Simulated scan of single mutants.
Amino acid sequence: MLMHNPPHPGEVIRELCLDPLGLSVTAAAEALGVSRKTLSAVLNGKAGISPEMAIRLSIAFDTSAESWLNQQSQFELWHAEQHRNELKVKKLVAA
């Protein structure tokens, strides 16, 4: 079952990881081994969580990479579902 309008994983990173630790974007990016621009794009919902970023986050915050990828997948799927009726798809059935 899809969550209703799930947050972008970047919001989760900011609210549950960076803010409680008092980390700036610059400090977090350095710890993750990515550029500030890369992390900022994720935090601002302009980029998604890649498998590599999921692994980086899992190491830095002692979480699972799968949880980050699942959040990204749920976010993307919910937004795609909002346009389901616009898709031109025919149902296939056995003859």
Rank of each mutant, 00 (worst) to 15 (best):
D62N: 14
M53F: 06
S40I: 06
E52C: 13
G33A: 11
L57N: 02
A27K: 11
I55V: 08
I55W: 03
A54T: 08
N44W: 12
S24Y: 01
L57W: 00
V34H: 08
E30P: 13
K37T: 09
M53Y: 09
V25Q: 05
A47C: 15
G48H: 10
G48P: 11
A60R: 10
I49T: 06
V34M: 03
L39K: 01
I49V: 14
M53V: 14
E30Y: 08
P20N: 14
L21G: 03
M53I: 12
L23I: 07
S24A: 08
I55Y: 01
A31F: 00
L43N: 08
D62R: 15
S50E: 14
V34Q: 04
A27N: 12
L43W: 00
T26I: 12
T38C: 12
G45Q: 13
L21M: 15
L39H: 01
I59T: 12
A27R: 04
V42I: 15
A41I: 02
F61A: 05
V42D: 07
S58Q: 06
A54V: 09
V25G: 03
G45Y: 01
N44F: 08
L43Q: 02
L32A: 08
M53K: 04
A27W: 00
P51E: 06
G45R: 01
A60Y: 00
A31N: 02
G22V: 04
G48T: 05
P20A: 10
V42T: 14
A54S: 04
S40V: 05
V34K: 03
I55L: 15
D62F: 04
I49L: 12
R56N: 04
T38R: 14
S24R: 09
G45K: 03
A41R: 03
G45M: 02
A29K: 11
L43I: 09
L23S: 09
S40F: 00
A31R: 11
A28E: 07
V34G: 02
K46M: 13
T38Q: 15
R56G: 00
L57F: 03
S24L: 01
S24W: 00
L32G: 08
S50D: 11
S40M: 13
S35K: 12
L39A: 06
A27C: 08
G33V: 08
G22N: 05
D62H: 12
A60M: 09
L57A: 05
E30D: 15
R36C: 07
A41H: 05
S35R: 10
V25N: 14
G22C: 03
F61G: 05
A31Q: 11
A54Y: 00
G33D: 02
A31I: 03
S58C: 10
G45S: 07
I55C: 12
S40N: 15
S58V: 05
A31V: 02
L32N: 05
V42P: 09
P20K: 14
G22H: 02
G33Y: 02
